[in-house]
Simulated assay, not measured.
Amino acid sequence: MSPRPVPGSSSGLKKRFWSEASIVDEMEEFGVALDGRPVRLPGGAPLRVSSRALAEALAEEWSRAGRDDVEKRFGPLDLPLTRITGTMIERVAPDRTHSISTLMEYGKNDALCYWTDEGGALAERQQAELAPWLAWSATRLGANLVKTTGLMPVTQPQEALERLEATLVAASDSDLAGLGVAVPALGSLVLGLALMDGVLPVDDAVSLTTLDEQVQMARWGEDSALLDRIATIAADLSDAARFMTLAR
């Protein structure tokens, strides 16, 4: 019996081809099967994880995908945990160095360190809401980052960058995969690590990374494009945080 492949990353919708999604207990790992056929990722690796909680969530995700659509269609957005799991298995695990290097680019240019130079409501909120996380980075991670105002780039201390990198080296493959979604959404490695550490709730993370948008809308009124952007960030962070929790 041939395995069912995971849909590719194309935005095109696929037709649901199964009736039941289930967990396959394989010694110390758990796979997902569709009508008894094991699911494989685009690169050919089996969709298999070590966490039963994550496997159950993956099976439930596949059980729901396309189920309520009139034409039984589904797409990658219906399978967020599967997409992150696929990244963990086929990209992170084979080459952790590349994943760490990519995340470190955000650490070198962490959005947490770039504050407005115009004063006003945004500056006040940055001082009140961002400064504590710079302090957390220094105390919890040992990474004392330098903040700046305006858009001119700031070079972070080498020691701080080394501490951030050491934190990533110590992270699990699943946490690196989750960070691969969360950090670009936040524009901040530090906030991503706080989310991973469980000390930064998703709602607070969304608020911190969209301070500019919030201040703009408070002054000029709601903007659909900004609201859509905030909703996308919220969805990405929720998926990443849930994945990292389930994978442990």
Score class of each variant (00 low, 15 high):
S2E: 05
R4E: 14
V6N: 02
V6D: 06
S9Y: 07
S11L: 11
S11Y: 06
S11P: 03
E20C: 11
V24K: 01
D25N: 10
E26F: 06
E28K: 09
G31A: 05
A33I: 09
L34V: 02
G36W: 07
V39I: 12
R40N: 11
L41N: 08
P42S: 08
A45E: 01
R48M: 12
L54K: 12
A55R: 00
A57E: 04
E60H: 11
W62S: 01
S63I: 06
G66I: 04
R67C: 04
E71P: 05
K72I: 01
R73W: 04
F74V: 00
G75R: 13
P76W: 03
P76N: 03
L79Y: 10
P80D: 08
T82A: 15
T82H: 07
R83N: 04
T85W: 00
M88Q: 12
R91F: 08
A93I: 11
A93Y: 01
P94A: 12
L103E: 04
M104I: 03
E105I: 07
Y106F: 15
Y106N: 01
A111Q: 02
C113Y: 00
C113G: 03
Y114L: 05
D117Q: 11
D117H: 10
L122E: 02
E124Y: 02
Q126G: 01
A131T: 12
W136L: 08
S137C: 11
A138D: 13
R140P: 05
N144T: 09
V146N: 03
G150T: 01
L151C: 02
M152V: 07
M152L: 10
P153M: 10
V154H: 02
Q156L: 05
P157I: 01
Q158C: 06
E159H: 04
E159M: 03
L161C: 04
R163M: 14
R163L: 12
A166D: 13
V169P: 01
A171C: 14
A171S: 15
S172I: 04
A177M: 14
G178P: 03
L179W: 12
G180V: 03
A182S: 15
P184F: 04
S188I: 09
L189G: 01
V190G: 10
V190I: 15
G192P: 05
L193E: 09
A194P: 11
T209Q: 05
T210G: 10
T210F: 09
Q214E: 15
Q216G: 00
M217V: 09
S224Q: 15
S224F: 09
L226K: 14
L226G: 13
L227S: 12
R229Y: 13
T232I: 06
D236S: 14
D236A: 14
R242A: 14
F243P: 04
F243I: 11
M244V: 13
T245Y: 08
R248T: 14
